[in-house]
Nucleic acid binder design. Structure first.
Lengths: 216, 216, 216, 216
DNA sequence: CATGAATGAGTATTCATTCAT
DNA sequence: GATGAATGAATACTCATTCAT
């Protein structure tokens, strides 16, 4: 609660006023597109207003500041990203058919590939902003740790008992695999222009690498 | 040659005027610090001038535009980054003591860790700019492909004949390991605040993961 | 049509937005005063803003660039100047009481004296800019030729048949008299500080000189 | 003496240091060219330095300020322009072969045509600056009056006694003919791009117009 | 609720001028 | 004498934000 003020304040603001109007949606869409294209700092509100087909004042009537507009773009993404993972983790591990680590990992990866591919632009904006907003970064990783990592550790221990993971501390395992997954997501969705991916095939390759490495 | 105009133009510009004066170095240092802290677009030339202890006009006398200042920061980094890799690759593979893939990888990683740790800020600036400059990204990857990837493929074939890599196409191997390495470099040097790393220990863990994965 | 893009573009811009607001008129008035006083290049937009009692941004909201502000000053003058001449020519020649060349010339000169005296400052700005803007000069003279000179030639032939002009080609007549008139307008309205003139008396002297010279 | 400080101060400055060095001449040439092309205010000293093949500091070493450079361009022109007229007037009128007003006028015009054609660019600069420098304009006309007009009045009276000029006050005659001549010089040498003129033929046409007008 | 005119602080860049070498 | 690095004030122009309509 205390450490989430930035994100949660924006969330509260979003929820106070119920569903978005047409204009609001146009503004958000335009903001996502333009923030992703040129970065938050280089995007101008007048450009966004023009792209949204809206008067410049309208943006400020709804979002107050340019910064709030950014948060209005990022927060729903964050809210949808993290908890979903957590819920799925619990769900996916306890219930078949994920009776193996490979199967679990594969399902997890496919799910996140779909999510990120559907939200490429916002993911890119998030990464760019994480790079120089200390507060946002801190809150993001705090949330990530609380809502995702803890659950992952639990899951890993389950599979370790089945002898499916090497004898490495759970933290190290998460870090190694997480680093790879992040490298993958970042390079495919933020850095490189987006050709669509075959999620199934990609997930297979990724799982293979994570579990077995490239050694002969 | 033809596809590198942006980078090579900046390089030429840098070389035309011989060694940098004191003021030039102060400007570059300040620019690196401030670009890394708030991003190119959000950094103002007046701020950089103040931080460098220099009149604002002096920046423009030396670099002409803010954009050229950015390139004056990035280009030496790029020039030092890519070719060094290539030269070392050739050197490291042909000559002992890198008689194993593990040993080669380890040396390569330690070398790049040292380079990036010494140039954290510029690396961060580069990544940020790659995210929304199509021309820079294109030229960067073109250069990377020409000067690094080709050599890597050769190296991999050497080790494959010794039976040290799995039966996967060289491209896939480079992609898998490269994605991981990039995820590692990006998260440690650009995204997270910088505690110093024990390069030897880190390299060992990374090599282990790359070669054997996390499977039990 | 094709050769008037500069002027006609500005004209289009002016007509798109209907009548000028108060602030716009204040800006135009201040711009005229200051451009005339120190010349376009030496006038600063901040000075104009201050003189107009307006924020500097307001100028750019309405005119976009300093150059467009200049054109917004010049174009209405040009539009009012040239066609009016043409219309009047036709009108004045065909209909009494201008049954003599002297009478026609006198009416024409009085009319233009009134127009230029009322628009001294803009006329001065126009002359100054014509001196070093090739495009403006070209378009101005193109327009002048198309809308004024042709009609003048016609008029002259009418009076020549009545034996009122010397046996000189119409072009030479227009050039001789035009050079004198231009010298008169330029020296009185642009170069010299402006005491008000007695248009009737001035016109009489001018017509006398044009028709009879100074010879005894 | 008292009213000529601006021009005479510059003159003094020029004479103090004897003949110009090579670099000084290069600077003056470049200044004339660039001032004429874009006007004093829009010309930058760095551009002039570059065009002169000289370091920017060199301009200021010799001329102190940009304004002094302008005066260094204009003053020799003024000094050569006015007195020459006066001397010639006296000379030309008293001594044959100018035994008629037409002959005198013709010689005068041909002489000034040659002078202005050889100094087109400086003439253009002078006119541009006269338009918005009150001090320069005042001193210029003062000098003109003192050194030229007075002599002209004398000359006119000589020819009037021979019955060669109409019964108009000498001031009016000078004004009428002067206005025409100025209109001619301004339009041919300052306003219009410079095709070379046939001075003899032009002078004949001009004299004809001045003495007889265009009446039939 | 939406508009867009208005603002003034801020931006990158240019300029005339100075001065140590 | 000539240079060109250095300056800081000024320039045209942009920006996020406000508010009367």
């Amino acid at each position: 609660m205390s450490s989430h003020n930035l994100i949660e304040a924006a969330l509260a603001r979003l929820q106070v006023k119920g569903k978005q109007t047409d204009k609001q949606q146009q503004i958000l869409d335009a903001a996502v597109r333009i923030f992703a294209e040129k970065g938050y700092a280089a995007a101008s509100t007048s450009e966004i207003a023009k792209a949204a087909g809206v008067a410049e004042g309208t943006i400020f009537r709804h979002y107050g500041t340019k910064e709030n507009l950014l948060l209005a773009v990022l927060v729903p993404f964050l809210m949808e990203a993290a908890p979903v993972i957590a819920d799925e983790l619990v769900h996916d591990v306890l219930i078949p058919p994920h009776d193996s680590l490979a199967s679990f990992l594969r399902a997890l990866i496919i799910n996140r590939l779909a999510f990120l591919e559907a939200n490429r632009e916002i993911f890119k904006i998030l990464v760019m902003e994480l790079l120089h907003r200390d507060d946002l970064r801190q809150q993001f990783f705090g949330m990530f740790q609380k809502r995702v990592l803890k659950h992952l550790y639990t899951v890993i221990e389950v599979y370790r008992e089945r002898g499916e993971v090497a004898d490495i501390p759970a933290e190290a395992i998460v870090e190694l695999a997480g680093t790879y997954l992040f490298g993958y997501f970042f390079s495919r969705f933020a850095l490189l222009p987006g050709q669509p991916l075959n999620h199934e095939a990609e997930a297979d390759r990724m799982v293979g690498f994570i579990l077995r490495g490239i050694g002969g």
